[in-house]
Design a protein around this nucleic acid. Sequence first.
DNA 1: AAGTGATCCAACCGCTGGCTA
DNA 2: TTAGCCAGCGGTTGGATCACT
Length: 271
Amino acid sequence: MGRSPCCSKVGLRRGPWSTKEDSLLANFIQQNGEGQWRSLPKKAGLLRCGKSCRLRWMNYLRPGIKRGNISEDEEDLIVRLHGLLGNRWSLIAGRLPGRTDNEIKNYWNTHLLKKLNAAAAPHKDLPNLAPNPKRSKKTKQSNATPPPPPPAKEAEAASAPMIKVCVPKAIRVSPSFSRSSSYDSLASGASNSDSGSGSGSAPEKAAEKLAFMPVAWPSIFELDEGDYGVCGADDYFLNGGYILPVLNHSDSISSDVNMLEKVYDEYLQLL
DNA sequence: AAGTGATCCAACCGCTGGCTA
DNA sequence: TTAGCCAGCGGTTGGATCACT
């Protein structure tokens, strides 16, 4: 019910964005803020549907977006979180500041599945994880993608115990810490639990729980004053009154070798 | 140099749930 | 209670680019 057509598709542009469109969108949002996506294109003078504008902003134009060069630490975290959360890309992205769900999803589908498949190759009893066999051959490294891991790490990955990947049914994550959370409901013990209708596996319930779990970011990302990031104050995500610090690029990620373990443990303990 | 196939990723699509009248 | 609007999510597609022959 209630599903509106995304856009009239009449007279609206589609496909790649031009730099002019980008600047129009960015300028408009800088002046007027995010939101009102449906009416935004008209106000901003764009011949795009609101959905397209939102996607462009979220995945490309938003300040603080990191592009390419996903570090090994980030990669490791993605793999681990995916093992816990499944294809909840937005939740995973919420743990990787500056990364978008789209980027993580793409990275998973193009890079990580291959790696995991390679690692799973000796384990013939394990299902093939590749979404599309046609898309799983050689590895190409563009300048926007990280260099291939050293052979030693590959071998290590291959010999490492296979990571169990649970793939619960994708559900929409209710407004949570990752985007526009309100922890009030959590504090009061209430949960809107839209997915509560679902019976839910343990990982799914844990993920559901995580969606409302306030995270002790400062304890995880212990920032120095100089770590406030690429864009200074912009490197804070405002989340329902909570300010979550954003890491200063990969430097901060690699600066604390225990950080990923902490994050992972935190999730694990919720299962 | 040209042709072909593989790969990547930006963008699109359809669905879901929250909110409101 | 119902219906419509909206924003957000995950899955999928297709054009651009790269690598190989």
